[in-house]
Structure formats: structure tokens, C-alpha cells
Design a binder for these strands. Sequence first.
DNA 1: GCCAACGTTGGC
DNA 2: GCCAACGTTGGC
Length: 154
Amino acid sequence: MRYWLLKSEPDVFSFADLKKRPHKTEPWNGVRNYQVRNMMRDHMAPGDLGFFYHSSCPQPGIAGIVRIVKEAYPDPTQFDPASEYFDSGSRTENPRWLMVDVKWEAGFKTFVSLDMLRSDPALAGMLILRRGNRLSITEVTEKEWKRICELGGL
DNA sequence: GCCAACGTTGGC
DNA sequence: GCCAACGTTGGC
């Protein structure tokens, strides 16, 4: 079992939005990066846990925990011309883009801000803190996972 | 296969 | 709105 960090812009879809969904579950659609797609396909599995990270917003940081509840499967938005995620180069018989389903698992007692992540020496190696990192999903080590859960009050 | 141009991400 | 970083595109 692995640990992940998933970025989302809270204006578009927030951790609170996820909690309000039926079964607190939502397909993680819109991934259009090959590295991230491959990671979902090859390394993510139901049961894995992830941090829900708010990006591109006044207060970037981690709001809580989600669980991966469905393995990678074709993202239907790639075939929908009305969708902003439409990809005319993708074929139904060989879908280019995949998604997983995630479920709201637990909210942090304390929001773990980007500042808190940066200022903790135990987290200095995190991919999310690297300059220029643009992957919307990154893997988190078990040590990092436990430390961040402490910071979040869990 | 190279690489310049362009687009996107995301913190500030 | 700025800008650094990096992925993608497309001409050659």
C-alpha cells in the first residue's frame, strides 16, 4: 500500500466538496499528464491513502485524507467535446487518459499549510516542495505521511 | 531526433 | 499580474 498527495484547486473542487458527494466519493478526472497517468495505472491501488492538497489559492496546503477506492479506468471526459478535458486524439478502443475514484476519509483537525510543510525539516525531501514541480499527483513516503498526520492533529 | 516556441502550473 | 519551471508541439 502506498501514500499519495493529490492537488486540486479548491475553487474548482475542494476537500469540503468531496465530503458532500454521494458516498463521499468522486472520480479524479482531468489528469492530462503522462507521468501522472502512468502512476495511477501502474502504482495506485484501491486501499491506498492520499492527502488532499489545495493549490492555486490564498492558503495552499493539506486539508485532509482521501482513500483510493477504484483502480485506474478510462476518463470519460476525454471523449466529451463539451468538456474542457476533451482530447480529440484519444480513441474509445484505446483510451489515452485514466482516472481513479477517491473517497473522503478524514479531515485534519489543523489545516497543514504549505508554510508548515516547508518549515519542517523532516519533510524537506517532499516532491511537492521542489521548485518547478508540476505533477498533480506525487507519492509520499510513510515517514512523511506519519509526520504530516501529526501536524494535522490526527 | 533536435530545439525553439508556446502553454500551463502554481506560489507569491 | 508576474515569473520560473517544465511539458508539449511542430517545423526541420
